[in-house]
Design a protein around this nucleic acid. Structure first.
Length: 429
RNA sequence: GCGCAGGUGGCAGAGCGGUCAAUUGCAUCAGACUGUAAAUCUGACGCCUUUAUGGCUACGAAGGUUCGAAUCCUUCCCUGCGCA
């Protein structure tokens, strides 16, 4: 039912081209998994998705569970619901332990900033930045912590209260599982997550884990990691369906010994593949991958959860990552950011109001092939026309899928390094 | 010509004696977004500067009342509606 074959290994890096086989078809890797949180890639119809070179979509267990309520038990399954007969993944809800918990409390996302916004903006002068640089010998964590402590002294503004983006931790974590106080109380644990994911019926499902914050200290991170390992075993034990592949998740924060331990422990379990999770700084992410992927079983696929941008994709591929998922292509499209080989640009800006050029020259996505101009897209965004988000999403999704196809081809031909330089050089220019 | 309602920052539109350089929305400018609480959020938005419980010029125009006016009074100019 499920399999993974390595087709070719790169000559200069740990990159590999492979094929994941699932009951709903194959995924050629390295691949980008597009995010369809609530059983739909936002703004796109299933027909649209089919035109974007998308191979596989990831749906969110927590949000589906919350939305379905009692209807979960009679749910028709994601493939039917989405009118999508290709491969699907579901996340376990583990990321929501973070995003509703420490992520919220620490005002931090998937990628933690080295110098958080709160430290650089709003009344701080350039000398503050220079101060930050001068203090470079102190640890990144201390600086982040200091900035969060500083931020907490600020009263919540009307805006962040109004928009519901305050800093209250809405999660309570116990050995048994996690309580979420997201509107109403709900409880999730490995067994429940497995049950939900089996009802959803994706081809690849994930073990229930806790994604930790880089502001959590060593002791907390270690305790959380070994608990996530216990939850991994419980996830394996709870899984009943034979037609779904289950991936375990490596945690351990930004700590080398913990990451290596997690890779060894989770890697030794009977998972079909592995996810690498966590919230970390951009630089630290590269270290994490360097520590982890060499210790994971070579013949099973590795998924880098929640990443990324162009440079992150190359960095991950070179370190042996097979699949990625990220909201960047879809969310940023809705926000007006269009990705191109030359970097992204915000088509809502006034400078594009009369730009008759295509989004990207030589782009073969359906939107560019239709000859949609930057001006037209600009006008649609300005008119708040829903079509704007759809067209932008089609372009971005196609762009990232096309990038992955080029990466696969480059690995086959031994030109990955050149491709990377080409893309990153374009981005600088 | 008479009556009524108005003229406020790029636009719309609050304010109706001091806490008003002036609520708010739009527009504009800048920034953010990485296992989606996000088709969203954050700044800036009269001019100047030593960016400050700073200075200057401002609410159609000109006068006036007042310690103090975008806010009250007078005249003028203009706009919309109604009547001739």
């Amino acid at each position: 039912m499920f399999g993974f074959k390595i087709v070719k290994k790169d000559k200069d890096s740990r990159a590999r081209v492979g094929v994941i086989e699932t009951p709903h078809g194959i995924v050629e890797t390295p691949a980008y998994t597009m995010v369809g949180t609530n059983a739909a890639v936002r703004t796109l119809s299933s027909e649209d998705v089919a035109e974007t070179k998308t191979q596989i979509v990831i749906v969110n267990t927590y949000h589906m569970w919350k939305g379905l309520g009692d209807k979960l038990e009679v749910f028709e399954g994601l493939h039917a619901k989405m009118k999508w007969q290709g491969p699907l993944m579901t996340d376990s809800g583990g990321f929501q332990v973070f995003s509703f918990g420490f992520g919220r409390e620490h005002k931090i996302g998937k990628i933690a900033q080295r110098f958080p916004e709160s430290m650089l903006s709003r009344g701080s002068s350039r000398s503050t930045v220079e101060l930050g640089i001068r203090e470079a010998d102190s640890t990144v964590r201390e600086r982040r912590l200091a900035s969060v402590a500083g931020a907490e002294e600020q009263p919540a503004t009307r805006d962040n209260v109004h928009s519901g983006r305050s800093d209250r931790n809405l999660v309570k974590i116990t050995e048994e599982g996690v309580y979420f106080y997201d509107g109403e109380e709900r409880f999730l644990n490995p067994e429940i997550s497995m049950h939900i994911q089996e009802k959803l019926g994706a081809d690849i499902i994930f073990a229930f884990d806790e994604c930790t914050s880089p502001l959590n200290d060593y002791e907390y991170t270690k305790g959380s990691m070994v608990r996530t390992h216990r939850w991994a075993l419980r996830s394996l034990a709870a899984k009943k369906r034979e037609d779904q592949a289950l991936y375990g998740i490596v945690q351990g924060g930004e700590f080398e010994d913990l990451r290596k331990e997690s890779a060894r422990v989770v890697g030794s379990m009977a998972f079909d593949g592995f996810g690498i999770g966590g919230s970390f700084g951009k630089e630290e992410m590269l270290d994490v991958l360097d520590w982890v992927t060499p210790l994971l079983p070579e013949g099973r696929p590795r998924h880098l959860l929640g990443i990324g941008r162009i440079e992150d994709i190359f960095a991950g591929v070179e370190r042996g990552i097979d699949t990625f998922d990220c909201v960047i292509p879809t969310r940023e499209a809705r926000h007006g950011s269009l990705w191109t080989k030359g970097g992204r640009f915000d088509v809502r800006k006034g400078k594009y109001a009369e730009d008759k050029g295509k989004i990207e020259n030589d782009c073969l996505c359906p939107v560019c092939l239709r000859g949609i101009s930057r001006k037209e897209l600009h006008d649609l965004f300005k008119a708040k026309d829903q079509e704007a988000g759809r067209l932008a999403t089609i372009h971005n999704v196609w762009f990232f899928n096309d990038l992955m196809a080029k990466i696969r081809k480059a690995i086959m031909e031994g030109t990955l390094k050149e491709l990377k330089e080409e893309y990153l050089e374009e981005m600088k220019g």
